[in-house]
Amino acid sequence: MPGPSQTRNPFTEHETPAVSVAIEGLSKSFGNRVVLDQVTFSVQPGEIFVLMGPSGSGKSVLLKHVIGLEQPSGGRVQVDQYDATAEETREKVRMAIVFQAGALFNSLTVYDNLALYLREHDLASEDGIREKVGRALQILSLEGAAEKYPSELSGGMKKRVAIARALVMEPQLLLYDEPTSELDPVMSATISEIIALLKNEYHVTTLVVSHDRDLALNIADRVGILMDGRLIFLGTPADLREPKDPRVAAFLYPQIDLQNPRYKQLET
């Protein structure tokens, strides 16, 4: 893990201006099932925004809208000054997403997974690629895995490869879908540090979807909580430590009560 004093970006040789994300009244339905309902918030340039929420509340769907993989049913998403669904957006803004399930290319080795973007866009010589890929693998403690295929990796390793692949892209906007699920506590902390490092040193605008309370409290500039497709909380980590909304408190600090378990409460 490089110290914060290091000034040379291991991935970006050039300064790139940070971009903002504006989500305005975003709604999405699949059939007649409303998944996102009038969600509005924005991510400032160079900010870390952590989005939390129960499983199935629409977080992954929201991320897909930001990266332009889904068409909104209502409202819109702007990345910088571009519409997220426009094809030119990907050419003007370098965006990367770490998918929840990794989405690694199964037919390529870990090394080639990381190198693909650089090769296809002709961004570096093979030597340059080796250096950048090696650096990303090293940061995520994946040196031994370079020649392995995704099917030979554990769940947590896949996740780290997915993160490494996103880092190699030198993005201006980086989206993470549950980057620390499936990771052990130390690796989770490492990932949190990397996310913070990229922001502090290189002003990468970051939107993290996570259930990881430690990550949210430690590195987020702001936190949003999505529940049933609506944003029920928007504030700083400090606000989150003593939530006023009982729904937020119940979500973040659930009691484990063996005498009166939740599944029994549901039955009655």
Binding site: K64, L69, I97, F99, A101, A103, L116, Y117, E120, H121
Partner: peptide
């Protein structure tokens, strides 16, 4: 398995 989505987001 979203590999195609990954390509699209990489602008490939």
């Amino acid at each position: 398995y979203q590999e195609v989505d990954a390509l699209v987001t990489m602008n490939i």
